[in-house]
C-alpha cells in the first residue's frame, strides 16, 4: 500500500489538491454569486443550486481550457521550438519529430515498447502524437463547454438587466467570452515563457524540471 502511494504520489497529491481547491472555489463562488443576487434584490440560492448553475460551470471550464491549451502548445511547440540552455528544450540539432531509430518506432521498437509503437501505419502515427492530441481534444472540449455554459450565464445577467438574450454564435463573438478566454491564455503563456527562460539560469535541486545544480547555463535538454 505504502509503495503504491509512493509510486503514484505525484498524481495523487495533485488530484487531491484539485478536489480541495474545486470545493473551495464552489464555496466562495456560491457566496460571491449570492452577493450579486442580493445587490439586485433577488433571493439567494442554495449551494446545490449554485453547483448546478451555468455560472459555476463557466468559471470552472474557462480555467480548464487554458490549462489544457498550455500543455497542448507546450507539447507540440517543443517538437520544433528550442531554447538554448533550457532543460525544457531539446538540444539544438534535434528540432522536429526525429528519426524512427531515436524514437524506437516500427522496426526499431524494442521488446518492452508499447504495441502501437511497433505497429506501422495509422496506429503508430496516432500513438506517436497521442499525448498532444488528447490535450488538444480536452482543450477544445473545455473551450466548447465554456462557450455553452458562458452563453447561459451571460443571458441570465442580460435578462436580469432587462436586455434580450443572445444565442451561442452571438456569445462567442462577445467581449465577455473573449475577456474570459484571453485573461486565462495570457497568464498561461507568460508562465510558459518564464519557465523556458528562467530554467536556463536558475536551478531546483532534485527536480526533473531543472538541470542538475552544477550543469552549465549553456547545457540544453539536460534534466536533473
Amino acid at each position: 500500500m505504502r509503495r503504491c502511494l509512493r509510486d503514484n504520489s505525484l498524481t495523487l497529491t495533485f488530484a487531491t489538491a484539485f478536489l480541495l481547491t474545486l470545493a473551495g472555489q464552489a464555496l466562495v463562488g456560491h457566496a460571491e454569486f449570492n452577493n450579486g443576487l442580493l445587490v439586485d434584490s433577488l433571493a439567494p440560492v442554495s449551494l446545490t443550486a449554485y453547483l448546478m448553475s451555468s455560472d459555476f460551470a463557466v468559471d470552472v471550464t474557462e480555467n480548464w481550457q487554458s490549462e489544457y491549451l498550455q500543455f497542448f502548445l507546450y507539447i507540440f511547440g517543443t517538437v520544433w521550438l528550442l531554447q538554448r540552455g533550457s532543460p525544457e528544450s531539446k538540444e539544438m540539432d534535434r528540432a522536429g519529430p526525429e528519426d524512427d531509430e531515436t524514437q524506437r518506432v516500427g522496426a526499431h521498437a524494442r521488446d518492452d515498447s508499447p504495441r502501437w509503437a511497433a505497429a506501422e501505419g495509422i496506429r503508430q502515427k496516432l500513438f506517436s502524437r497521442s499525448l498532444g492530441l488528447v490535450m488538444a481534444a480536452l482543450f477544445l472540449l473545455s473551450w466548447l463547454a465554456q462557450s455553452v455554459a458562458g452563453t447561459a450565464a451571460y443571458n441570465e445577467l442580460r435578462l436580469r438587466n432587462l436586455q434580450p438574450p443572445v444565442d451561442w454564435s452571438g456569445y462567442i463573438l462577445s467581449a465577455d467570452f473573449w475577456s474570459r478566454t484571453l485573461q486565462n491564455w495570457q497568464s498561461e503563456l507568460i508562465a510558459v515563457a518564464s519557465m523556458a527562460i528562467l530554467s536556463v539560469y536558475l536551478r531546483q535541486r532534485g527536480s526533473p524540471e531543472s538541470k542538475p545544480v552544477g550543469a552549465p547555463h549553456h547545457a540544453t535538454g539536460v534534466e536533473g
Binding site: 460551470a57 480536452l138 455554459a149 447561459a152
Partner: peptide, 30 residues
C-alpha cells in the same frame, strides 16, 4: 502498474464526465 493504469483511466473519465456535466448545465439553462 495496475493502480497507475486505473489512475490514468480515472483521470480521463473525471475530466471528460466533468466537461459533459458542465456542457449539459449550459444547455439546460438556455
Amino acid at each position: 502498474m495496475t493502480v497507475t493504469k486505473a489512475l490514468f483511466v480515472l483521470c480521463l473519465t473525471v475530466v471528460v464526465c466533468g466537461l459533459a456535466y458542465f456542457t449539459a448545465l449550459g444547455l439546460t439553462h438556455r
